[in-house]
C-alpha cells in the first residue's frame, strides 16, 4: 500500500487522498469484520478451528433479516419431462419425434418415417429433437426431471412414432408395418384413413372399368 501510495503521490494529490481513504476503510472494515465474527459466530469447541476435524468450532447463529430466495420449479416449464411428453403425444393423432423437420430431415431413418407417413397422407405433429437437447437426452434430469424421449418410451433410437398417444415404433417398425399393410389398420384404429387405401381402391375401380369395357 505504501509503495502504491508513494507512486501515486507523484501523479496527483487527489489520488493520494483516495488511497489513504482506502487504507482507512480497510482498517475500519477489519475491525468491523472482527466485530461481525464475534457477533455472528458462536464458539462451540475447545480446540483451535484449524485443528478441528470437522471444523465445527464456529457455527453461524444469526441470520440477516427475512430475505427468502424462492426457486420457481423448473419442472413445469421444462421440456422432456414425462408430463411434457405426455402432453405432446396427445396433441395430435400422430406425433413424430425426429431429427430435423419433415421438410428437411437430418437423418435417413427420420426421412424414411416422413416418406412413409407422406405416402399415407397422414398429417402429424413433428418435434425436432436436435433443437431440444432436453427432449433428446433428458439433459437436465437432475434439476427438473427431464427424461428425454428415449427414456419416456424405453426406446433407444430416434425417430419415434406415436399414434393416439401410444408409442408404435421407430423407423424399422413403421417400414415393416407399411410393407405388411398393418399401418393402414393402425391408422384406422386412430380414425385416420390412409391415402394409399383410397389410391388402391381407385386403381381397383379403374381396373374393373377397363375390364368391363374390354
Amino acid at each position: 500500500m505504501e509503495i502504491i501510495a508513494r507512486a501515486s503521490s507523484r501523479t496527483s494529490s487527489s489520488c493520494k487522498l483516495i488511497i489513504t481513504s482506502i487504507v482507512c476503510r480497510r482498517i475500519v472494515s477489519t475491525s468491523g469484520l472482527h466485530r461481525y465474527l464475534m457477533l455472528n459466530l458462536k464458539p462451540t469447541g475447545t480446540s483451535r478451528p484449524g485443528n478441528m476435524l470437522n471444523n465445527t468450532f464456529l457455527s453461524k447463529t444469526t441470520s440477516y433479516g427475512h430475505s427468502k430466495v424462492s426457486f420457481t420449479p423448473l419442472s413445469t416449464a421444462a421440456t422432456g419431462t414425462k408430463e411434457h411428453v405426455d402432453e405432446l403425444v396427445k396433441k395430435n393423432k400422430v406425433v413424430v419425434f425426429m431429427k430435423g423437420d419433415p421438410d428437411a430431415p437430418r437423418c435417413g431413418f427420420s426421412n424414411a418415417v416422413v416418406q412413409i407417413l407422406r405416402m399415407h397422407g397422414v398429417t402429424y405433429d413433428s418435434h425436432n429433437v436436435l433443437e431440444d437437447e432436453n427432449l433428446r437426452q433428458g439433459l437436465f434430469y437432475f434439476c427438473c426431471g427431464a427424461l428425454g424421449i428415449k427414456e419416456y418410451s424405453n426406446w433407444p433410437t430416434i425417430p419415434q412414432v406415436y399414434v393416439d398417444g401410444q408409442f408404435i415404433g421407430g423407423c424399422d417398425i413403421l417400414l415393416q408395418m407399411h410393407q405388411s399393410g398393418e399401418i393402414i389398420e393402425e391408422l384406422k384404429k386412430a380414425g385416420i384413413r390412409s391415402a394409399l387405401l383410397d389410391q388402391a381402391l381407385e386403381e381397383e375401380r379403374k381396373n374393373m372399368d377397363s375390364k368391363k369395357s374390354e
Partner: peptide, 21 residues
C-alpha cells in the same frame, strides 16, 4: 413387432449406447 424389437433392444441395451444405428 414392437415387443420383438423391444426384446432385441433390451438384450443389446448396453451395446446400444455406443451403437449409432
Amino acid at each position: 413387432l414392437l415387443e420383438r424389437h423391444r426384446m432385441v433392444n433390451s438384450i443389446l441395451a448396453e451395446e446400444m449406447k455406443s451403437i449409432h444405428a
